[in-house]
Amino acid sequence: MKIKADRDVCIGAGNCVLAAENVFDQDDDAIVVVLEESPEGKDADAARNAVGSCPSGALSLEE
């Protein structure tokens, strides 16, 4: 799995951080930062949930 984030599309809702705090963070402008591009185990499951809950569609993943 590889996580991708389009920072130009991110609206700073923070759903990703709430769903997967080990995988995502936000910068000072509340824009997504990917901490772990290839999460495994529980973090991979959490990242999938985060991608699905992103309101702007800024997150995607490749299996």
Rank of each mutant, 00 (worst) to 15 (best):
S56N: 07
V9W: 03
A44Y: 15
V17H: 01
N15F: 10
S38L: 00
A30G: 00
N15L: 10
E21R: 07
N49I: 13
D43A: 13
V17R: 01
I3M: 08
A5H: 11
I3E: 09
E36C: 07
A30E: 09
S56R: 02
D28K: 11
V9M: 08
I11T: 12
G52Y: 04
V51H: 04
P39Y: 10
V51F: 08
A46I: 01
G41L: 05
V51A: 05
C16N: 01
K42Q: 13
I3W: 10
S53A: 15
A13F: 09
V34Y: 06
E40Y: 08
D6G: 02
D27C: 01
F24D: 05
M1E: 06
P39L: 09
L59C: 03
D29I: 00
C16K: 08
E36I: 09
C54K: 10
G14R: 07
V32L: 09
L61K: 13
E40W: 04
G14E: 00
G57H: 09
Q26E: 12
R7Q: 14
E37M: 09
D27M: 01
E21Y: 06
I31F: 14
F24W: 06
D27T: 07
D28I: 00
N22S: 04
G12F: 02
E37Y: 09
V23Q: 04
D25R: 10
A13P: 00
R48M: 11
C54H: 04
P55T: 10
L35W: 04
R48K: 15
G52Q: 07
E37I: 03
K2D: 08
G12W: 09
L35S: 00
I31V: 14
E21Q: 13
R7C: 05
A47T: 08
A58C: 13
M1V: 14
K2H: 14
A50M: 01
A44F: 14
G57K: 03
A47Y: 04
P39W: 04
R48Q: 14
